[in-house]
Write a protein that binds this DNA or RNA. Structure first.
Lengths: 348, 348
DNA sequence: TTGTAAGCGTTATCAT
DNA sequence: ATGATAACGCTTACAA
């Protein structure tokens, strides 16, 4: 439209700055990086030129010379699978934390037929490190990254996580705590609404660990318990709840790790006219936002997605700085927030 | 752990390939790009070496030489605001479409205090083009991009979109269609549950256009209608619905563009024991996934996020290829899918 | 059909 | 305190 369109179409490289300021290119570079003293006078002169034409160093040139990109990769599940709120929370917090450290984030959908994208990231040296989400117990992306020698951190952990860097939430412990909480309230028959059969079959850690923690706690407390798989969507949650009521009316306590099914569970409860927590108690693991949206508000371990994303970035930065340092990890077991969905077991 | 860790730690550049294959560097380059004929024999020899040591060209070096990065930027709302499902749909489909075109996607949260991230993308020439989400009627990011001369496409459009490239859904038309649909069914008093007051104040296009389309259609059909702002979350939706019932019991039809409020609206309906569509009809604009999750399923214009994201990428690629071509845009008005939430107005 | 060499914009190592 | 210059790994015009 106006002349302003071409305002910044001037050559804009360090040589041009040097020319206009009447100094050598290296001087400009040093003035910017501060890696060698530059007299205040020339520094001012250079800065003036830079401000005038709005110069910023060319990322690719810098990356080529320095051997690092100042960018990290974030590998997410493919778009075909809708992201859950929790996964979304991770993405958001990683992007946030990265921005805070002046890092750019390259998104890479994996699985599906998108291996090319992942491979570009790795072998094209587009990033200094990678954060991997939705880890499987056996995960080939992890082995690919270790053989490539690229620093990485996983959100979630594999079956044998020794030697890798990760942050995760301790599903086994959290689910166990929920069971203990229900047992303390006098419940004797409880169910776990878990993630989908497919995920379990695919070796998805959280589903496995939830199941294990549940089984162990049920055994310890001498309860009778059942594990129910449920797909990650409201409709499945509703159906799952109805079947549970129909076939196992004796159940008085439910534990769930299936955040996406919650709205369906809630609908099931309301349609069945079940009073929570008088007739039925529910506890679970979910993002706070979901727990508070549930009616009545859900007694749950709130998954600290923000904290986890931030930590993942911190760990990655550490790993990039010292690739041979001892790999650290973080297993979070946030406390259960007592809300309104659990209460004493109904008298027989 | 094992020796495999250092497997790919060898020098891996085009010169090394050339050396091992016994040809010149340029020959390797040409063999890869196909920009000049290479004899089958040497081509095979080169490919063998490449396969053996797993070579991929260094992205930064290529970007520096070619002057383009093969990456695009996707500017999203800051993490502080939870992304709605529709926004998430855009992100997913853009990433998907970009991957399909062998493009990487750099994520940049904007707004908040994240201008540095945005600025890095632009002036650091990290990307060949940008897709901008959540456009305001007056949007400084747009002007920044035009003065930088960087190709961009917006999802949504500004108040004066001439000369820019965009894809958007035609909220005015869609909301008007909903009103007409309700009017055809005999409804005389209708309400629009819009987005939040803050968004309207901030000059958020969809909210403005929904309001305008609603007002116009109501006028044309001689209905009485009211516009109700509502924050983007279930709790606000529920409260909004309750207030509507309380203060305006005469309303028999509701139109909503507030996807995130839907679960709350549904809860409100169920708690109030209102029969939909016998006593109250609801129509709206939402992602199909939400419309089908509503009970009863929501009569709604399904926002084709997948299609929009794909088109945005296509337009951007076109713009990158011919920056001075006439800017094109796409204003989508998908048909309303008749589902179960609308019916004849109740007899007085 | 293939090889040689220049140059993209930086940073870093020499000098001065 | 500053300047010239050599890389970084790639593409491509120019020679052969």
């Amino acid at each position: 439209m106006s002349e302003s369109i071409r305002l910044f179409e001037v050559e804009m490289n360090i040589g041009e700055i040097a020319r206009r300021a009447g100094v050598a290119r290296s001087t400009v570079s040093y003035a910017l990086s501060g890696r060698r003293p530059v007299s205040p006078a020339t520094k001012r002169r250079i800065q003036a030129v830079i401000d005038e034409i709005g110069y910023r160093p060319h990322a690719a040139a810098r990356a080529l010379k320095e051997g690092r990109t100042r960018a990290i990769g974030l590998v997410i599940p493919p778009a075909s699978l809708l992201l859950t709120d929790m996964q979304l929370g991770f993405v958001a917090s990683v992007v946030e934390a990265a921005a805070h450290a002046d890092l750019d984030v390259l998104l890479s959908p994996s699985g599906g037929d998108h291996d090319r994208s992942f491979e570009r990231l790795i072998s094209g040296r587009r990033v200094d490190g990678v954060i991997l989400m939705e880890i499987r117990l056996e995960d080939e992306r992890v082995t690919r990254l270790q053989q490539a020698g690229l620093p990485f951190v996983t959100i979630g952990h594999t079956a044998r996580p020794q030697g890798t860097c990760w942050v995760d939430v301790d599903y086994a412990t959290l689910v166990a705590r929920c069971v203990h909480h229900l047992a303390d309230l006098g419940h004797r028959t409880v169910a776990l609404i878990n993630r989908s059969t497919e995920l379990v079959a695919a070796g998805y850690g959280p589903a496995h660990r939830a199941q294990a923690g549940f089984a162990e706690a049920v055994r310890r407390r001498g309860l009778s318990g059942m594990n129910v798989p449920c797909a990650d969507n409201p409709a499945a949650g509703e159906e799952c709840f109805e079947q549970l009521r129909e076939r196992h009316g004796e159940i008085t306590g439910i534990v769930t790790v299936n955040e996406a099914a919650l709205p369906g569970i809630q609908r099931g409860i309301e349609r069945a006219g079940v009073a929570v927590p008088r007739e039925l108690s529910i506890a679970g693991v979910a993002a706070r936002h979901w727990a508070e949206g549930f009616r009545p508000q859900l007694t749950a371990a709130d998954v600290p997605t923000l904290e986890m994303g931030t930590h993942a970035v911190d760990l990655l930065l550490e790993r990039i700085a010292t690739p041979d340092g001892a790999p650290r990890h973080l297993l979070l077991a946030p406390p259960i927030s007592l809300r309104d969905s659990t209460g004493p077991a109904p008298a027989r």
